[in-house]
């Protein structure tokens, strides 16, 4: 059994409670920021920011949309970062939940190589090279609670639970919103434990919303996205399905 997030961006209002709840639970400091002409702040994920709501104004079919994307680690079934690191004292997968966990030993890894390996551009490094990202609030999950971001979400955009249940919930929601948003889609849902539902083309939300064929290092540029994913995850898909 593994655990998954399901993030329904069609219900997100970008209140950013998740962003704060994450910092609160992890006792993470705030970053010194300035207003850069956007509500999105901090500008990006960082060693001290595991969860970030991305804001994008997009005109789609002549209609203004303000798209919100609560970005975080996808906890891939077979995580490239883990494979690249090849050091279970630095990056390991919690067998009970499937959470991909970074430890302080990530300091000994080649940080840039790990960051490059992530198709979703999630890990961030400290000055000393230690890496950090969402840890699925493993302590909470192990004690029967949901991650802090899910707990605090007011609108029902964030969900957490058994991976198969989350996937079926995601599919159910997808079917519900298809009428209103014909282009709605689940992002890489067979490969990750953080399933996003977007109403529009995922790239309008975030450059790294889906594992990209252009993403350096991992995937050959000639492959289609689906092929690339297949290749990326190939050796592990069978195992992953067993976990589910």
């Amino acid at each position: 059994m593994s655990k998954s997030f399901f993030i329904d961006t069609t219900l997100c209002t970008a209140c950013r409670a998740c962003q704060v709840a994450c910092k609160q639970w992890h006792d993470l400091p705030a970053e010194k920021t300035t207003n850069r002409g956007s509500f999105q702040n901090p500008a990006d994920l960082s060693f001290e920011t595991y969860k970030l709501v991305r804001f994008n104004e997009q005109v789609i079919d002549g209609k203004l949309n303000w798209l919100f994307f609560p970005d975080q680690c996808r906890h891939c079934y077979e995580a490239p970062c883990l494979e690249v690191a090849d050091d279970p004292t630095a990056i390991f997968k919690d067998p009970a939940t499937g959470a991909v966990i970074f430890t302080a030993n990530t300091k000994n890894l080649d940080a840039d190589e790990i960051i490059d390996s992530c198709p979703y551009n999630i890990p961030r490094k400290a000055k000393d090279g230690t890496l950090a990202k969402c840890d699925m609030c493993l302590d909470r999950v192990q004690n029967g609670q949901v991650p802090a971001c899910v707990k605090t979400c007011p609108t029902g955009a964030m969900h957490f639970g058994e991976s198969d249940e989350m996937l079926s919930l995601a599919k159910q929601r997808l079917a519900q919103v298809k009428g209103k948003f014909p282009k709605a889609t689940l992002l890489d849902s067979d490969f990750v434990q953080t399933i996003y539902l977007t109403a529009h083309d995922p790239e309008l939300y975030s450059k790294y919303a889906i594992a990209s064929v252009t993403n350096k290092g991992i995937i050959a540029p000639m492959l289609t996205r689906q092929e690339a994913l297949q290749k990326m995850f190939k050796p592990f898909i069978a195992a992953a399905k067993e976990l589910v």
Binding site: K23, A30, T33, N35, F39, N41
Partner: peptide, 12 residues
């Protein structure tokens, strides 16, 4: 509160 100021640091 720094967590809130981080998100909305300045008058706009």
């Amino acid at each position: 509160q720094e967590w809130l100021m981080e998100m909305q640091p300045q008058v706009f």
